[in-house]
Nucleic acid binder design. Structure first.
Lengths: 187, 187
DNA sequence: CTATTCTTTTAACATAAGATAAATAATCAG
DNA sequence: CTGATTATTTATCTTATGTTAAAAGAATAG
């Protein structure tokens, strides 16, 4: 839990009690690459922190695999469109590189919010930051060419391109794999 | 404040005290169409609730006006990428239809979070819901044609197309006004 | 009501990206 | 190590959308 606690500390330092309460509702899970950590159709009841490894959220549109997002070491991953609505998720979480994750039971976490406002505040801040990232991503998608989006990703998150199969990156950028390959050829 | 209180009630009912505390840090503002409610370059320190009217968030990319989002009666609007980071916003809020809004002082609101956990919870839930909408919008932009996006908007939010000049809708959809007009002609 | 300005449509042409297929290249299981 | 699978690139052709310019239509101020 060490890394996770450090991550927490940056967002909103917690008391010992609060940290212990979180530890009690969390499990450490090891999972191999290409496995689904969470599968399509189930309601999201877990928030994950990635101690080690790489993961993505994906779904199918017209039978085609589309990557919604990537998450790396030292970050949170959750299917928020299910977590915050209680509806079943059409998305899955897949591990792309052998991982160790902290799995936090969301229902129990939400109960902790009542006794530990500081925990509620922590996760408020975590998801506010994630929200901001998502808003920025919309901006990136609105009026940038595929090539601009690729180059931006190359700058902002080169590790995505180092660690993730290109076919997953292509759909993340909103283009086909063939287009991505063509764009990469332009250099 | 009546409408705003009703809106609050749906998310997270508050005690009288909490409602009063919010009322104390809020102003009611009337503003005419085409005016900027907030301008580019300033750090966002206000969260708005729209009692009446229509607004949009916009910014410029390469000198071109791009609509990030629309907000209508009975909804919150804020430039979260500034509000939650404290950085100046590159975006503005413009009124598209004569409006009456509740302006909530964000700094004072954040202070209220300390004394009223229920208020913190309220806004946590409000922004969680907004976050979910944004995630869903990414999905819409990833692998839908401009025409699909237009038709989806026509279904989900026909009022956007009724009340908003098409030039603003086009950039919201991520296409040029000329393309939007062409798509509309296809029927 | 009219002139002016702003908005939307139409047209012609250019280009980026999609679709399909096939060829390499890389990875993996046995 | 080798064959089989999976990932990536390359090529060709098609199509959707961008760009620019101009025309038509709607809104607004005086």
């Amino acid at each position: 839990m060490q890394k996770f606690f450090q991550y927490i500390h940056k967002f909103n330092p917690l008391t010992k009690d609060a940290l212990n309460a979180i530890a009690e509702i969390s499990d450490i899970i090891e999972i191999k690459r290409n496995k689904d950590l969470q599968s399509i159709g189930h309601t999201c009841k877990t928030i994950y922190f990635i101690n080690k490894g790489v993961a993505r959220i994906y779904y199918f549109k017209d039978g085609i695999d589309i990557t919604e997002s990537f998450s790396f070491e030292n970050n949170i991953i959750a299917r928020v469109e299910s977590l915050f609505t209680g509806k079943p998720s059409r998305k899955a979480i897949q591990i792309l590189e052998d991982a160790e994750v902290v799995a936090i039971n969301a229902n129990q976490l939400f109960k902790l919010y009542d006794t530990f406002p500081e925990i509620e505040r922590l996760f408020r801040k975590i998801f506010e930051a994630a929200y901001v990232e998502t808003v920025n991503r919309i901006e990136g998608m609105q009026f940038h060419s595929a090539e601009e989006r690729y180059n931006a990703l190359l700058n902002e998150a080169p590790n995505v391109l180092m660690k993730v199969p290109l076919k997953y990156v292509a759909s993340y950028l909103g283009i086909t794999q063939v287009s991505l390959s063509r764009i990469r050829g332009h250099r």
